[in-house]
Amino acid sequence: MELFINQVLAGISTGAIYACMALAVVMIYQAIDHLNFAQGEMAMFSTFIAWQMMQWGVPYWWAFILTIIVSFLGGILIERLLFKPLAKAPVLTNVAGFIALFAIINSVAGLIWDFTIKQFPSPFGSSPFLGSQLISTHQAGMIGVTVVLLIALFLFFRFTRVGLAMRAAATVPESARLVGINTSWMIALGWGMASAIGAIAGILVAPVVFLEPNMMGGVLIYGFAAAVLGGLSSPLGAVIGGFLVGIFENLAGTYIPGVGNELKLPIALALIITVLVVKPNGLMGHTVVKRV
């Protein structure tokens, strides 16, 4: 029983990261109807920026905040430069754009910081949390930061003018434009926020998976799995999906024989396929009706 609880808690803490990634993916999907395949690489790059600042002697939390700001601006910049011109282009062109971004960021990160594995500090330490053997302080910290982030986002989208405008622009762009919302900038803002959320996920997960240019590959696949499980059109679903996927991953690793670390990615793949077969709209997504 102890093992079970332990694994569930560990699952929740990695699930927090998947929830962040899924949230970032869903935010961009909501805004432009495309999946951002470069989301993981963007988060990786942000994490490297944070690492570089710390190498220069910037204190952890300052580096954290500065990185989020830089990532936010970077996200907006990418949208303005690369994806705004592609807004009306077919799906294939957009996928090509994302793939290009993936390759460029991965390669440039390798070029600047090379491919060796780097240690990334955790501000929470790794001692047992509140004296219990179940989870470490870093895991508890990951859950804590994610929960705070989610509440902040919820309040932002529920009670602020900008948040409401962003939601309006994502759901009914034409009507939103008619009431005077600058939908184009709302999309850019969505990109910026997705990029910032990704940066947080990257910084939180870096102490666990270690810092290197390919570190987010697996995390992104789990983020996708979480987003699909929650339904691509629902931010809340994405978060719930993230936690569920995290728990599932840990339990599968513990109780299914033959599933160790080496099978982590195939599990995510199996999860995506299963959801697509059984419930294509996910837990909380809504059906899109196509008209002729």
């Binding site: 090509a96 754009g97 793939i99 290009a100 971004l101 460029i104």
Partner: peptide, 14 residues
Amino acid sequence: LSGAFFGVLLLVVI
């Protein structure tokens, strides 16, 4: 550098 090169070229082409 080949990854970056591929990426940039992909963008140029599209």
